[in-house]
Each structure stands twice: as C-alpha cells, then as structure tokens.
Design a binder for these strands. Structure first.
Lengths: 185, 185
DNA sequence: AACTTTCGCTACGCTACCGTAGCGTAGCGA
DNA sequence: TCGCTACGCTACGGTAGCGTAGCGAAAGTT
C-alpha cells in the first residue's frame, strides 16, 4: 500500500524536525536544516507536506508521549509514581523542551492548539484514572472531582518547570501529593 | 539631562513593540513593523538599541506589571483577591499574551530568562507577604513555607491559563484557596 | 526485465528582514 | 538667535529562508 521509501523518508524527516525543534525552537527551525539533518532533500519534504507549518505540526504530533498508567494500589503511590515519571519526562525527553514553544505557537495556530489539547488530555488521564480507582476503593470521597484533582496536582509541577524553573525534588513532590490527597477526603 | 525627543520616541517604540509582540509573537515581530506602527524611523530604533533582541527585551521589561499588595486582614481574603486580580491580568492585560512567548524565548535567551525570573518573583511576592502576615497573626502555622504556598497556589492558576486553557471561575478559585489554606495549618 | 514511483541534487526566483549610510529638517537648550 | 542633537526619509548591501522546476539515478513493483 505505502511505498517503504515514503515511510522511511517521512520518519527521517520528522525525527530530524523534532531534534531541531528541541534545539532551536519553532522560530529557529528551518526546512533547509531539516533537510540537511535528515539526509532527505528539501524537495522530498515538500512532496509530503504542503508547507513548513504542516511539517512542524506533523513533527509535534509524532511524539505525543505514551501515557504511563501505573496502578500501585494506593492513590498516594499512584501520584508519586506519576510525578516521578513526569519529572523524568520534563527533564530528559524531547517533549519537555517542546512544551514552551508549543504553548506559544498554540496561541496563534489553531492546529497546534488542538495538538496541545491532546497533549494535555493525555497527561491528565492517568490522574483521572487513579482518582477513579481511589474512589472505588473507598480511599477518596465519592464526590471527589477528578478534574480539580488534576489541576491541583499537575499545576504546581508544571509551574515549577515553566515559571520558577526549579527541579521537582522528592520533598516537593511528596508535599504536593500530600496536599492533593488531603483534598480528596 | 535626557532629551525629551529621545524619551518620546523611546516610549512610542516600546509601546508599538509590545503591541506587536502581543499580536504576532516573538518570531513575528519585526523591526520594520515596529517602526511603521510607532511612527519612528527604523534608524531611530537602531540609534537607541544595538539590535532587534535588545529592543524586544526592553519592550518586555517595560511592562513588568505592578504588584498589587492587598491586605484584607485574612489569608483567605488576600488569596482570593490576588487570584481575581491575576485572572483579570491573565485575560485582559498585554502581559498575558506575552507569557507563552516569554517562556519559550527564555528557554534560549539568557537575558530574557532573567526578565522572566523577575516577572515570576514579582508575582510570588504578594503571596509571600500574605503568608508572612498570616503567620504573624497566628492564622498560619509558624513553620509554613511561603515558597511552597506560592507554588501550590499559583501553579493551578497558571496551569489553567497555559495548559488546559480554562477560565479561572470563582468556584475554581475558591477551591484552590481552600486547599492552599489547609496546607498552612 | 520492464515499468513506475520516489529519491537526491542543483539551480533558481522571490520575499522578508536585518542593519547601515548619508542627507536635509525640525526640535531643543543656552 | 544659534549651535547641537535627534529625527525621519530614502536607498542600499547582504543574508536567510521559502517554495518550485527539471533532471538522472535508485529503489521498489509486477
């Protein structure tokens, strides 16, 4: 159905684009640089996408991170595990460096705004699930609002990453989890 | 001492730059557009700043928002007032539209990272002060960590603005304040 | 083996911007 | 009134980057 050559070049191009987005940001990423790094010719890029924006959008879409649903048996355990995971992602994975640029770009590009929404939703889901399990176990109050828990829990974590630029050390995570748990009772 | 002509053109240029930053973002803001909108000649811009980056930095610096220290007599009142104020700023003032771009630019430009740090610090200060007053009144535990309170309180507010893009309605603010208060006891 | 499709390559045209030079003019201060 | 300084204007040189055209070669397909 699909020519393996197309799949190959497509993957090489998107990988290179992601690398460059991480290194140079949205504004600094050029089609020419993507071509150079991927080994694909610029013409090949334009054969698969109509313009630069489409390429960047596809690149961002290509790395929507896998959600890591962890079921440790307690809400406390689930949240701590999740936060550690998030910390790792926010400091190592390419995703992290992309977030600020994505936030900015989403402000003006509706297409990227959708990608961002998908990102956010995928981030929130494990929290929702953990809360649902906790309610089922009787660990959390039945009327606990999963949405609010997600805001409350994820807010400080992202705030540290984006605004105050401090690390998510264990003590901090533990305190945020503690407060979050308290709000579910 | 300072020529009024310099002050006048400087202000016109920075105002125009801020407007354009809000509308077009960092990448889309050009010196030529700033010149056109401000009524100043491009040469005048380059007489006052060495290059484009310096102009944009100055523009961002020129709108560091005034901190609104509100002392209502209770930590609850202080926080609610602060959150409403923040909501207003985050949805109307030019500051708001600039934040995502600033976050992204700070990722690569150390100069702007400093501006961002100043921004953040100024945001956090009223919270610190409110906590200090609450401790003095005996309303909050003496060992309450103002830094943590700021993270806990501001995190969800900014998260809503940047990531989940939902409004800061009264019910949400009230719940966040409630949880924050609980953490100080 | 014959074909079809995609590829990489080179070479462009074009536009948008950056940053500078030189000029005559208008506002400012003494 | 008279210098001084900043101003706006026009005109450039130079660069980076987008997107396209046309080609022969290579990799797939039947």
């Amino acid at each position: 159905m699909t020519d393996p050559r197309v799949a190959r070049s497509r993957r090489a191009i998107l990988d290179a684009a992601v690398e460059l987005l991480v290194e140079q940001g949205f504004a600094g990423t050029t089609v020419e640089a993507i071509a150079a790094r991927s080994g694909a010719a610029k013409t090949t890029i334009y054969r698969q996408w109509p313009d630069k924006h489409a390429v960047l959008r596809a690149a961002v879409e290509s790395i929507v991170p896998a959600a890591a649903p962890s079921d440790t048996g307690s809400l406390h355990g689930d949240l701590v595990t999740f936060a550690r995971d998030l910390d790792r992602i926010l400091h190592t994975a390419p995703t992290s460096a992309l977030i600020p640029g994505l936030l900015d770009a989403a402000e003006r590009d509706p297409g990227l705004a959708k990608v961002l929404a998908a990102f956010t939703a995928r981030r929130r889901k494990p929290v929702h699930d953990a809360v649902a399990r906790a309610i089922a176990r009787g660990e959390a109050a039945a009327n606990t609002d999963p949405e609010f828990v997600a805001d409350l829990f994820l807010g400080p974590l992202f705030y540290r990453r984006l605004l105050s630029r401090e690390p998510l050390d264990d003590a901090f995570v533990e305190r945020v989890v503690e407060v979050t748990l308290a709000s579910t009772r």
